[in-house]
């Protein structure tokens, strides 16, 4: 099963690279006009194109890129003429750090809140949680970002509004600077995870084995944590991993709002510069993350099933 899924994943990545290359091709203007800006005359543009190899037909350029990529060469950035790999790598590390920080806050918190909401189902706590998560889900993340800035940076002045990283700052300072985007991301993903945790548990409360446990004299908290939760793990794991993927892939907007030097920010800049090699590399990293986390979700939720862990 895993081998088959890996093959499908590779095919998905290939399809993604074709779609991206042709979408960039379809955008008006190219890297030559973007670099030259005001100085663009038909002659200078043509010369730059020839120099960058843009005068070749699309399929030839794509084929060459693919051939190099398969050999591990991500190419040269068209704007600053440095190799793509280290640039993208550094930015991806930043994005991963932000995602990990957000996940470290969001996953335990949403699991705990979801379980509590299930235990106090129908009470004021449950209702408060339900309505606040609904609000969080329906608010666009950039708005959440600006609201967080307005409250914590502008009004209270606890945190800097922008999460720009200088090279000389310590790790702790780094975390401090990243807290606002981290909170924003956590707020966005927590709602999903918590609602699903609560729903997956409550869904099981009507099962005969839960009634049986109740008739054995098991109290509510143990009923939910010990009897219901292990059987609800499979959907919960799936939604957690999908949200992790979202934390890495979906950060683009949040990074832009906080001017955080992550991969998403780089992607946005590169698209406006029509810098195809960087766009390709970033998008493939995003797509690869998504594909592998999806695979991971399936593996973990299969492992959560006792029937598969302990065959007859």
């Amino acid at each position: 099963m895993v081998g088959q899924r890996l093959l499908f994943g590779a095919i998905t990545l290939l399809a993604v690279s074709i779609i991206i290359a042709s979408s960039v091709e379809l955008l008006p203007g190219d890297v030559a006009t973007a670099i030259l800006g005001q100085a663009a005359t038909p002659e200078t543009v043509a010369a730059l194109r020839k120099q960058l190899g843009l005068d070749l037909p699309f399929y030839q350029r794509y084929g060459e890129w693919l051939w190099n990529f398969l050999q591990g060469d991500m190419g040269i950035s068209l704007t600053n003429e440095r190799p793509v790999a280290p640039q993208v790598g550094e930015r991806f590390a930043n994005t991963l750090l932000l995602a990990a920080l957000a996940a470290a806050v969001a996953v335990p918190l949403s699991l705990a809140l979801g379980i509590l909401a299930a235990i106090y189902r129908g009470g004021w706590f449950d209702k408060l949680i339900s309505s606040s998560t609904l609000i969080a889900i329906s608010t666009p993340e950039f708005l959440v970002g600006y609201i967080v800035i307005a409250i914590f940076a502008v009004e209270l002045g606890w945190f800097p509004p922008l999460a720009t990283l200088r090279h000389d700052i310590s790790f702790l300072e780094r975390i401090y600077v990243m807290l606002l985007p981290c909170i924003t991301l956590a707020l966005v993903v927590m709602a999903h995870m918590m609602r699903l945790t609560r729903a997956a548990i409550i869904n099981l409360l009507a099962s005969p084995y839960i009634e049986m446990a109740r008739l054995k004299g098991v109290g509510t908290a143990r009923l939910i944590v010990y009897h219901a939760l292990p059987n609800a793990l499979s959907p919960i794991i799936t939604v957690i991993v999908l949200n992790l993927a979202y934390l890495i892939v979906g950060v683009v907007v949040v990074e832009v709002v906080f001017v955080y030097p992550g991969l998403g920010q780089l992607l946005v800049d590169s698209v406006s510069a029509r810098n195809l090699p960087v766009v390709q590399a970033s998008c493939l990293i995003f797509a690869g993350t998504y594909v592998s986390l999806n695979l991971l979700a399936d593996i973990f939720s299969a492992l959560a099933n006792p029937r598969l862990r302990h065959p007859r």
Partner: peptide, 17 residues
């Protein structure tokens, strides 16, 4: 419940966790 009054359900397959 479970200590002095016990219950045996119809479908054991569904009633065991």
């Amino acid at each position: 419940r479970g200590a002095r009054i016990a219950y045996v359900a119809q479908s054991a397959a569904a009633s065991f966790n």
